[in-house]
Every structure is written in C-alpha cells, then in structure tokens.
Design a protein around this nucleic acid. Structure first.
Length: 603
RNA sequence: GAUCUCGUAGCUCAAUUGGAUAGAGCAACUGCCUUCUAAGCAGUAGGUUAUGGGUUCGAUUCCCGUCGGGAUCACCA
C-alpha cells in the first residue's frame, strides 16, 4: 500500500459510486474526514450527499459503498456504518509499516514532494512582515506581526514553497522628523551610548517629547485667545517641522545626515529586538528608497485611462465598480500619498523576482480597505499578478484593560515584555530544581527559549484573523495548552531516548508487535503532520500547527503514561516504542521550529 | 451616517470549511510519584453557540432582522 492511502481510497469510492449508482464524481472532490475518536475506524466518508442519486437510505448507501471498497483492491481491514457515516479501517499492518517507513527515511514524512498528491506544485512567494516605523520602539502589536510573519513563512516553506521574507521599513515622513527636531532642540547632543539607552527607545523618547512640547505651545497660544485650529497650525514647532520635511525632501545634506544618524540608532535597537524574537529577513526595503517609484506608474495609469486627473492636478482612481469609492493617488502638489509608495514597491518586487506568484502582506486588519484598493488599482492597470496580492489581515491585540493606546501609556513594549517573560521562565525553572547549574550559559539559553516558547505559542495558537486578548499573567503559564508544556514533552522524550537509545533495533524488526490503542493513535497523529502543514499553508495559519503539535504532545504523554518504553516486556516492543518516541520528538521539534520556537534537550 | 468584521463553558481559545453526543486549557473539586522528567496523567462539574426567524436530511458554520463590541470610510501613514 502507498504510504498515503487517501487518493487510492478516493478513487475506489469514486468508481464505487459510478458502478453502484451511475454517479460521476471527481475522486478529488470526495471528502474524507478523520474518524472521531469515539467510533472505530481511520477515515470516514459522509454519504448524505449521495443518497439523492442512490435512492436508498443513508445506512443502505453507506453499507453498499463499504462492501464495494471491501471487495476492491483497497487494503481494508473492516468497516462500520453509523447513520450516514461510513467508518473505514485500513489494514492493521499499515500503521506499523508506516512508522517503519518514516523511521527509515525521514523525508517520507517531512519532504513535501513525497507526502503531497500529484498535482502539488511549489510556488514562489514573498512575505512582507514587521514593517516598523523608525520613530518608536516595537510594541506588542508588532510582536504579533513579527511572530506571525515569520511563522507563516516557515509554514509555506515546510509545504514546499520557495519563500522570500521581506521587511518594509517606514523610514521617512513627518513622524520621523518629529524625533529629529526634538533631538536637535532639546537633546544637548546626547546619544544612545551616552545615556545607555537602546537606540529605538532613545529616539522614541524624542518623538514623545516633541508631542509634549508641541501640545504645550498650542495650549499657550490658545490662552492668548487664538483658536485651536489656528494654534495648531501656527505653533513654532509645527512651522519648523514642515520646514524640516521640506528640506528632507529637497535633499538638504544636513537634514539627511541627521536623519541617517537617528535612523541608524533605531536600526541598532531593532536588530537587537529582532534577534531576541528570533525573526529574520532575506531583504529589507526602505520607503525612502521606494516612495518615488509609484509616481511613474501613476503617470502611465493616467495615460492609459485607468486613472484620471482633476483640474487641480490631483490624480484619482474610480473604484465604484468594485464597490469601493474614489481614491486619491497623487496630491495636487504632485507629492505622493501613502498608497503611492505601496504601488511602487509592489511593482518593484514583481520586477525583481520574476515568476513571483504571490505577495503576502502581513498587516493588521485596520488596513483592510487600503489593501482592497491596492489590489483594485493593479487590476485596473491590468497587471497579471494583481490577484497574487494577498493581505494576511490579522486581528488587533487587546489587553485585559482594553485597547492599547499610546496616548494613555497602556502600550506594552516588546523589549519589556521579552525581559519579563524570560525572567518568569527562569524563576519557574529554578523552582522546579531540575537543573544542576543555574548560571551556565546553557541555563540562560534555556530560560530564554522557555520564555519565548511561552510567548510565541500563546500568540500563535490563536487564529491570525481573529482579534486576541493578551493576558500577561496567562501568557507565562507553563501548564496545559502552552509552549512550555510542549517543550517539556519534547525534553521528556529526549530523556527517554538518552536512556534507551542503545536498545533501538532496525526499524523493520518491530513489525511483529501488535500495537495498543495509544500507540496506534500516536502513529495516526504523526501521519497527520503533512495534512496539517498543507492546511496551515492554504489558510496562512500557524495556529493550525500550534493546535496540532499540542494534540501530538498530549497523545504522547497519554501513551507515555500507559506504557513503559525502556525495558518493556520484550526487546522488540522497546524498540518499537523508541522509534515511535523518536519520530514524535522529530515532529514536535519540526512544528515548534515552524512556530519559531527552539525546544530544549532537557529542562 | 455608510461599509466591513466579530459575538461559542466564569475566563482564554478550538471545532477538518454544511456533518456524528460542540472540544481543549485556565480557574474549582477528586484521585495517581519506590518504574523511563508530576512543567505530567486520569476523573467530576461547567453550553438554549448573543438573540429572533429562514434555507435542508443536517446550521456554531450559509441568508435576513435585532442587540452588543471593534475597524475603516482624509490631498494622514
């Protein structure tokens, strides 16, 4: 039997439907689902859809199909019918043989070319994520973005696709000028080094300071009887900031060098945070280098009639046909708006990477409208890759106290968060008292990995599309559906393998062992790996991987509790269980790696 | 105001895309360490899936209404 039997089974069922009921169904359209735990069987066919043409009751239809499969070449052990559900069991040996196969050759489990069906083809994809502003440090929202972007990229790679991970840094604009101006006026030449501050926090401090000073000026003017609007426009800082932006766009050397200096401070800070988060990029785009590219596309669009120019010189697109409205693409003074830049970068990327099929933007759902517009723009421009633009729109992160608001100081800083969660992991590990040396570099690494395991799993187990609640107290939990629980299970398996590894026989020596329900369940769970990866890639959802690896860890712990691995009653049983344990550990570490989590050999 | 989106156990999340008796964890309660890591395992309790209708063999899932939360609708980014 083929190591993946589904397509063979589907073909058999399809020909069954044809010969029994003259019903023509595509084999690939037949849906098989895993049999629920409380029933006997491996896969289940729901026959309701076929009862109309069969003219028989659901039970009779299921029975007839079951008998047809039984009589066919398909290696069926048995089947049973419950209402309209046909539960099929494949030959008993199948699962043991499967374990032997993947144990001998891991690529049979992990290589998408060997686990996916014939019509699978790898794609060339690009994932944009992170995309920070260079005026303030990263916060919890960015953390979700970064973890998600990194994990989604890994899921797609694990599914066999070629993935380019990119970051688009928003390094220009009036918000950047604010921190620059504040530093010039009030900084007294201090630097991150002189103040022992992380560069991004240092610059962020001046961004906040600008806002504070500016508000004070506005209030002062209002006291003198000036209206609010007037005050906001005429406040000295506001005038200066406009001037600074103008100078920046004109390429004034002094402004540019200040800008470069401060951005570099921020980049140093970001690099540190990215490193702690364990995320990386193949390529970094800077808006300052791409924001002009969109203008050319806009001129072409005007020429081709996709866009239109108003009398004042501003350029618009009419998207009413697509259910959207009119959208400005270029200001009347000829300067670009936000979307101009995104148009330029998209074009640039498809030019730079020929054959790119999809450009996946990991961006919060507050920008749903923006990305709808972007896609429509390229449809109007008749770019053949327009449909390849995909907005992976994730939900906002809330706190128990409500929404994060920088104005109210309720923003959770990424660096603080990481520091705290790692400290919690350290305390918890010390309380367990299992490590001999708590101060070694390995111990430090363990605390970091465990803390990040908690944080990453906590965030990634939630469906990306959904808004989620971040409860700091809960995120450091170590029990139950958590990263540390899965890490623990891995460490436990590794410990077993260290003890019994020497007793492992050749993989094909254990097939005589008649596996228990716990063992069979575990093998079936491992078997699901490639199915889950495929589903996770299709849905751009690392949450499916998180859910799966948790179920796998639970299945192992259940098995572990019921059976002794090392020194079982017979040598071949020990060997069987060692192979089973090892394959479980490999799948766990693979899934966790996809989530960006490093699992420990001991803890 | 218009458009989009969400509402599942006390809390945080699932539910194989329309399938079986809606599942996990946390919190609560009860058992299990003289065997390979108890950050574990097993059990008890907890639900009118916001609400009212509709579609059908079958609805947490699809459609309509209502209530409630969130987002977006700038020559901001």
């Amino acid at each position: 039997m083929n190591i993946r039997f589904e397509s063979q089974l589907k073909n058999t069922i399809a020909s069954g439907l044809k010969s029994l009921y003259q019903l023509n169904v595509e084999a690939s359209s037949i849906i098989l689902q895993e049999t629920k735990k409380e029933f006997e069987g491996d896969v289940t066919l729901v026959v309701f859809p076929y009862t109309k043409t069969s003219g028989k009751s659901p039970e009779q239809t299921a029975q007839a199909i079951g008998e047809f499969v039984s009589a066919s070449d398909f290696p069926l052990e048995s089947f049973n019918v419950v209402k309209g559900f046909l539960n099929l069991s494949v030959k008993k040996e199948f699962w043991k043989n499967y374990l032997a196969t993947i144990s001998n050759d891991h690529s049979q489990l992990f290589d998408p070319k060997k686990t996916s069906d014939e019509n699978f083809k790898p794609s060339k994809l690009m994932v944009e994520y992170s995309s920070p502003n260079t005026n303030k440090p990263l916060h919890l929202g960015h953390v979700r973005n970064n973890l998600l972007g990194f994990a989604v990229s890994n899921v797609l790679k694990a599914c066999g696709h070629e993935v380019v991970m990119v970051n688009l840094v928003n390094d220009r604009g009036i918000h950047i000028c604010k921190s620059m101006l504040a530093w010039l006026k009030f900084g007294n030449g201090e630097t991150p080094a002189s103040t022992h501050m992380k560069g991004d926090h240092f610059v962020g401090k001046y961004y906040v300071l600008y806002d504070k000073k500016y508000k004070a000026q506005v209030e002062e003017l209002e006291k003198d009887g000036v209206t609010k609007e007037e005050a906001e426009r005429t406040a000295p800082l506001h005038v200066e900031i406009q001037e600074m932006l103008r100078k920046w766009e004109a390429g004034d050397p002094e402004t540019k060098s200040l800008w470069e200096k401060m951005n570099n401070w921020v980049y140093e800070g970001f690099a540190e945070t990215y490193k702690k988060l364990g995320v990386s990029f193949d390529k970094i785009y800077y808006e300052s280098k791409t924001y002009l590219l969109g203008k050319e596309i806009i001129q072409d669009g005007v020429a081709s009639g996709a866009f239109f120019k108003k009398e004042d010189g501003s350029v618009w697109i009419d998207l009413t046909e697509a259910g959207l409205d009119m959208k400005v693409l270029l200001r009347s003074d000829g300067t670009s708006v936000y979307i101009t830049q995104d148009m330029g970068t998209a074009q640039l990327r498809f030019d730079e990477y020929p054959g790119l099929e999809k450009l996946i933007y990991v961006v919060g759902n507050e920008q749903d409208y923006h990305f709808k517009v972007l896609k429509e723009i390229f449809r109007k421009l008749k770019r053949n890759w327009a449909d390849g633009l995909y907005h992976l729109s994730y939900g906002m992160v809330d706190l128990p106290s409500g929404k994060m608001k920088s104005r109210e100081g309720t923003v959770v800083d990424a660096d603080d968060l990481i520091k705290e969660i790692v400290e919690e992991a350290e305390m918890a590990t010390k309380a367990q008292g299992k490590l001999d040396d708590f101060n070694s570099p390995e111990a430090k690494e363990l605390y970091h990995n465990l803390g990040m395991s908690a944080l990453k799993y906590y965030i990634l187990k939630v469906d990306p599309k959904k808004r989620m609640l971040f409860n700091p107290a809960e995120s450091i939990d170590l029990n139950g559906n958590t990263g540390p629980f899965i890490s623990y299970t891995y460490a436990r398996i590794r410990s077993v393998l260290r003890k019994g590894g020497a007793m492992k026989l050749e993989a094909d020596k254990f097939v005589s062992h008649d596996s228990s329900p716990e063992e069979k369940l575990l093998i079936k769970q491992i078997y699901q790996y490639s199915v889950v990866i495929k589903a996770a890639a299709d849905a751009y959802s690392p949450a499916l991987v998180a859910q799966y690896v948790y179920d796998l860890a639970k299945a192992y712990n259940h098995f572990y509790h019921e059976h002794i691995v090392v020194d079982a009653e017979q040598k071949d049983i020990t060997s069987f269980r060692l192979h089973l344990s090892e394959m479980t550990s490999l799948v766990i570490s693979k899934c966790m790696a996809i989530l960006g989590i490093t699992v420990p050999e001991r803890m």
